[in-house]
Design a protein around this nucleic acid. Sequence first.
DNA 1: CTAAAGCAAGAGCAGTGCTCTTGAAAAGGA
DNA 2: TCCTTTTCAAGAGCACTGCTCTTGCTTTAG
Lengths: 232, 232
Amino acid sequence: MNTVRGARERARIEVTAAIKDEARRRLAAEGAAKLSLRAVARELGMVSSALYRYFPSRDELLTALIIDAYDSLGAAAEQADARALAAGAPPRDRWIAVCEAVRTWALEHPHEYALVYGSPVPGYSAPADTVGPASRVGNVLIGIARGAYEGRGLALPPLPPALGPEAGRMAAEFAEGLPPAVVAALVAAWAQLAGLVSFELFGQFKGVVEERSAFFTHAAGQLAHGVGLSAV
Amino acid sequence: MNTVRGARERARIEVTAAIKDEARRRLAAEGAAKLSLRAVARELGMVSSALYRYFPSRDELLTALIIDAYDSLGAAAEQADARALAAGAPPRDRWIAVCEAVRTWALEHPHEYALVYGSPVPGYSAPADTVGPASRVGNVLIGIARGAYEGRGLALPPLPPALGPEAGRMAAEFAEGLPPAVVAALVAAWAQLAGLVSFELFGQFKGVVEERSAFFTHAAGQLAHGVGLSAV
DNA sequence: CTAAAGCAAGAGCAGTGCTCTTGAAAAGGA
DNA sequence: TCCTTTTCAAGAGCACTGCTCTTGCTTTAG
């Protein structure tokens, strides 16, 4: 795999990367809906049909970009948490730092954020390759909760009986060792975090919230409270 | 305005409605991205260029559909609240009923929900006509909080100083009489509610949450708690 | 009854994703 | 070294898309 194969293979890898780079550039400039294979090919000095040798369809190209976006966002979240951890921040501050990192990444890569957390492309369902990168942010949040839980426990209201088995299953599957109530709260907080970011990014706060940064930090703190991370 | 004008005007109104109906049908079937003027015209037995007499562009048609979607969702939320209120439900139950109504509407009209709360169409910014219908759900939530506040007050942690003026402005502008901390929590809860619904609708819960209904109801209860609506 | 306004239809432009064929270049075995 | 097989870019072409502009016909209003 790592050995240097013929010039053919190397050229193929390079061209594939060049296509993805150019596509990402056009994605950032005009959004996923206006991403056209012909334009990418034109910019690369090749003809549109040649592009199909590298990506069998437009959707495949988008999938590649989605995976990259998940990875990029996940890395941003992990770095923010690592920094906060190194600075000796308490769990609540780590949580807020990660939330802010997600928001910052989204503001810097609006179209890539929309690609992964916005409305799905019709007739397109994310292949299995995406679930790994997609869970990186969630895992960071779980890690923070686990650290806090192992430190001194998390106080949360009990789950309604109807949700007991479901939350237990989620805990066993994604966050071994955490109480089901915490896991349920984490999953909800993850979706709510995306809601806050999406509303700001998609213009729903236009004319409503002006001090977006301060508002978001406050909301992230509320989210932390919701998963049992106390205020100091 | 209400007088019966010539046959021309009446025909115009009818054709406009027919176009919107057919467009909504195709929207529900294939999503906004695949909504084509030509297909709508074809289905209506007219030629594509004739459609431009009624809607100057595809985006204008989408705007009309967006306004209708906001109105439909707003009406669903208002009805749910009215029903809960008539049944003598406490504020927290009214809140949950409205949240569930939003979710139900979204599950029944996924593409219309995506149109209003999903990624915006690139190069398209929502015109001012949409802000009125868009705020109906928010107003319902504000109404519930106001009812609870005037009943016995809402206990919420104090706002951080940095957010005081901003929250005060929002309160004065949208929810006269409610404490700024409550208004800030309401706006955040509104975005978080959309996050929960979007995650479920856009497939982000696939492989994670299975018992979606029970999970959502629990999360809506947490949201209610977050705006100070206590558990009974 | 006639002039003005409203309107459907058609042709056409520039763009899209995608397929299929053709001819050239590179790779590897004889 | 030659020669066959694989790999690939290019081009033509299909069926679409949103949109514009012109051409006539019909309805309305004076």
